[in-house]
C-alpha cells in the first residue's frame, strides 16, 4: 500500500491505457481457445485422436487453462501496478518491470517547472492517450509517464496541485 504523509491527499491515481494490456489479453484469449479449436478440428481433419480417457483430457485442459489464467494475470499485474499518483505534496511514479522488479520515484510539487503532454500517432489520437512529462528545475531527465488516458486532464491536475503546493508553502516533509 502506498504510504501517505499526515494530511496528504490523493488528487488522482492514473494507470496506463487499456491498449497497453490489449496485446497480452488477446494472446491469453488465443491460448485459452486453442485446445477447444483442436478438439473441434480433430474429427474434421481426421487427425488420430489419442486413446485417452475423458478425465485425462479434462485434467490437461484444467492445467492448461490455469496456466493461461495465471500467465494472463502476471501480464496484468505488470500493467496494472504501473501507477502515476498525484497527491497534495508530490508526484509519484510507480513502475512494475516484472514480477520481482519495481521502481518508485517521486518529486515534490514545489519543484515542478513544466508539464508537457505528448500525443503521437493515430491510436493515441483516436483513443485519447499519451505521455505526460514533468520537468523540474535543474534536472537533466524529466519525469515521464507513458500511455496515460486523457493526458491533458492529468496535466491540469498536476498544474493545479503545483499551484496549491506553492500557495501552501513547503511542508514538514520538504527536502
Amino acid at each position: 500500500m502506498l504510504a501517505l504523509h499526515d494530511n496528504e491527499r490523493v488528487h488522482g491515481a492514473y494507470r496506463k491505457t487499456w491498449v497497453v494490456f490489449a496485446t497480452s489479453g488477446a494472446l491469453a484469449l488465443l491460448f485459452a481457445l486453442a485446445p477447444l479449436v483442436l478438439l473441434v478440428l480433430t474429427p474434421v481433419l481426421s487427425l488420430p485422436a489419442a486413446p485417452v480417457s475423458a478425465p485425462l483430457v479434462t485434467l490437461v485442459l484444467m492445467l492448461w487453462w490455469w496456466g493461461v489464467w495465471t500467465g494472463a494475470f502476471f501480464a496484468f499485474v505488470n500493467y496494472y501496478l504501473d501507477v502515476f499518483v498525484i497527491t497534495s505534496e508530490r508526484v509519484i511514479r510507480i513502475e512494475q518491470h516484472g514480477p520481482f522488479s519495481r521502481t518508485i520515484a517521486e518529486l515534490r510539487l514545489e519543484r515542478v517547472q513544466d508539464v508537457t503532454v505528448e500525443q503521437h500517432g493515430i491510436l493515441p489520437t483516436l483513443l485519447h492517450y499519451g505521455n505526460v512529462r514533468v520537468q523540474t528545475a535543474g534536472e537533466a531527465t524529466a519525469f515521464v509517464f507513458r500511455a496515460i488516458p486523457h493526458p491533458i486532464k492529468v496535466k491540469e491536475v498536476v498544474m493545479e496541485a503545483h499551484r496549491e503546493a506553492l500557495m501552501r508553502g513547503p511542508g514538514p516533509h520538504a527536502t
Binding site: 502506498l2 491515481a13 496456466g67 502476471f74 496484468f76 499485474v77 501496478l81 512494475q96 514480477p99
Partner: peptide
C-alpha cells in the same frame, strides 16, 4: 509451480495497491 505463481501474483496485488483502487477486487 502454479501455486507459487498464484501466491506471487496475489502478493503483488495485496502489497502494491494504491488508496481507492480496485486491487482487492482484482
Amino acid at each position: 509451480g502454479f501455486s507459487g505463481a498464484v501466491v506471487t501474483v496475489a502478493f503483488h496485488l495485496s502489497r502494491y495497491s494504491v488508496p481507492g483502487d480496485r486491487t482487492a477486487l482484482v
